[in-house]
């Protein structure tokens, strides 16, 4: 693969290495989707099993959740803007967008950790009831994914600084882009079915 012409040399209709990598990564994302589907199903089954402990309505604060949602949504957009800079070959712009995305993701994780510690402090930890166990597992798994995404962002930024925007970097950025947008998709389901559903 030529470094100066990362994609332009591949005129074969979508079956070059790069697109096969993306398809492979997509299959990984879909298997991740199944993990979340199982966790959502578990949560749905256990949501009323509060074992005499607090239910979601007394624990969750919607304005706080709206804040988390906005952080993740804006970070999804800034990553998209970064991808456009990457395709245009504007390295500095890409790095700036990656940094903005990282800060937004970090703020999201900070808010989530704050929420978790508040809940545990109020005596609503994961061992309190089946409802809270499944809540912490589901939301925690998503948070863990976002944390992995943050680590990947740092690694990616380092690679771009060190090796430049070659075809390999663009391919990996495309995978990270899918991953980051995918986490926002999962979060849409989380805020709808975990948080909003409690306040109907």
């Amino acid at each position: 693969m030529s470094a100066s012409l990362p994609y332009a040399v591949h005129e074969t209709a979508g079956h070059d290495n790069a697109s096969m990598t993306t398809v492979g990564f997509w299959i990984y994302l879909m298997s991740d989707c199944l993990i979340f589907a199982v966790l959502f199903a578990t949560f749905g089954v256990l949501v009323h099993s509060t074992a005499g402990g607090p239910d979601g309505k007394g624990l969750f604060e919607l304005p706080f959740v709206l804040g988390e949602t906005m952080l993740l949504l804006v970070s999804s957009f800034t990553f998209g803007a970064g991808m456009l800079s990457a395709q245009a070959g504007r390295k500095k712009q890409l790095l700036a967008w990656l940094a903005v995305t990282f800060v937004l993701g970090l703020a999201f994780i900070a808010m989530e950790l704050h929420e978790f510690s508040t809940l545990i402090h109020e005596g609503a930890g994961p061992s309190k009831s089946a409802f809270l166990s499944s809540f912490f597992t589901l939301v925690g798994t998503h948070g863990l994914h976002v944390t992995c995404g943050l680590a990947w962002l740092i690694v990616m930024a380092h690679q771009v600084v060190r090796f430049g925007l070659d075809g390999i970097a663009l391919r990996r950025l495309a995978c990270l882009s899918l991953f980051w947008h995918f986490l926002d998709l999962i979060w849409i389901c989380v805020f709808t079915f975990v948080y909003l559903r409690e306040f109907l």
Binding site: A8, A13, A18, S19, A81, M83, L84, Q87, A174
Partner: peptide, 11 residues
């Protein structure tokens, strides 16, 4: 009109 530009979208 390249597949890759489709796959990455635009602003």
């Amino acid at each position: 009109e390249h597949a890759e530009s489709h796959a990455h979208g635009n602003l």
